[in-house]
């Protein structure tokens, strides 16, 4: 981590987000979903361009902090995808991930974040078509929700703790 923190914060009216488009970060496990996204690419399955992929070894590596940090600082959506349950390259990593993310989801409203901005799913390396479907649907959902105002932005400017009710 650099000490500077995030470099710049987009203005609350969302103008910067409009020019830059919606940003979705995808945390994909190396063995299944990253391969599935590759398969979708190889098959030329067209997808929305909002997703930015971070490759992680296993969904078991997912620290809820990664999701929280992304959403707090204004990424518009977070998608986590790994191997199907029972098919984890590391045997059980996705079971840990499933529990953590399920628990974490319940905390999102407390943080003032719409739970619809976060999704986790299982896509195997052969399921290119499934990946296309997941990305398309999630991107559409985030587009409907619009740019994420970000908790930090709101509290920073209005000195008001977000209620999560918008």
């Amino acid at each position: 981590m650099t000490d500077e923190g995030p470099r710049s914060i987009a203005p609350a009216d969302g103008t910067a987000a409009d020019t830059q488009g919606i940003k979705i970060v995808g945390f994909l496990c190396n063995w299944c979903s990253y391969g599935g996204a590759d398969t979708a690419g190889v098959c030329r399955f067209k997808q929305p361009t909002d997703l930015r992929v971070v490759r992680i070894p296993c969904t078991g590596r997912m620290d809820p902090l990664f999701i929280a940090k992304s959403l707090i600082y204004g990424v518009d959506g977070v998608l986590v995808s790994g191997c199907h349950p029972r098919d984890c390259h590391y045997a059980v990593g996705n079971f840990y991930a499933r529990r953590r993310m399920e628990a974490f989801k319940a905390f999102l409203p407390f943080m003032g974040i719409d739970t619809r901005r976060f999704k986790y799913t299982w896509v195997s390396a052969s399921e290119g078509q499934q990946w296309q479907k997941v990305v398309t649907e999630f991107s559409e959902q985030i587009h409907e929700l619009g740019p994420n105002p970000g908790v930090r932005r709101q509290t920073g400017e209005n000195s008001k703790v977000s209620t999560g009710l918008r």
Partner: peptide, 19 residues
């Protein structure tokens, strides 16, 4: 810390998107 995928490394990537 998992070498080559440390918290700092993953968060550095995330940070770039928040910028």
């Amino acid at each position: 810390q998992l070498q080559h995928a440390t918290d700092n490394q993953i968060l550095a990537e995330v940070n770039e998107l928040c910028a």
